[in-house]
Amino acid sequence: MRVTLTSLTAGAFLTLAMGSLHADTERVVFPAGYQDSFVNYLDVDHLDRKRVRKMYINSRAHDAAKAGEDLPEGTILIMEDHNAKKNADDTLMTDADGRLIAEDAVTNLFVMEKQAGWETDNGHWEYAWFLPDGSRKADAKFEGCFSCHANRTERDYNFTYSKFVSDQAM
């Protein structure tokens, strides 16, 4: 009994010593089939990085938000990166509205998922980085995700979806 108590105490101390409550990325599972089942609600032209970022949300969460509810536990937001198409002179190709045109290939997949009981620096949100084949990006760091998304606590830590919903309601 004494050994068990010591182990528990040591474990708790170690957890606290590791710092803030984030980055258990293994909890987020690759969202297989998302391109068919999720809603692509927005495309973002990232001119700085010459990319197009396609933003998705799972249908259940989308239905809840459209009904005026907060994003529920189980919400999954995805940022799907594509390189932007270029002209022969290496300038960025644009459509008639001046928007970038995405290449077909997905280069990276960034996922944020919200689940009850996940206590992190960003509420109940956790982040993950997947490659197009569904494997996790090795040695990925998530401090940037947590710190940047902390700038939008009033939108439940997301930059685009909550704004998308509120704009639609206007």
Binding site: L42, H46, D48, R49, R53, G98, T160, D167
Partner: peptide, 27 residues
């Protein structure tokens, strides 16, 4: 600079003090 508005969504990336970035309005 970040624009979340559907149809216009845009990210110009980080700007340090003194930096300037431009965007041509296409529509």
């Amino acid at each position: 600079v970040f624009v979340p508005t559907a149809g216009f969504a845009l990210d110009l990336g980080k700007q340090e003090p003194g930096q300037e970035k431009s965007y041509v309005l296409g529509k």
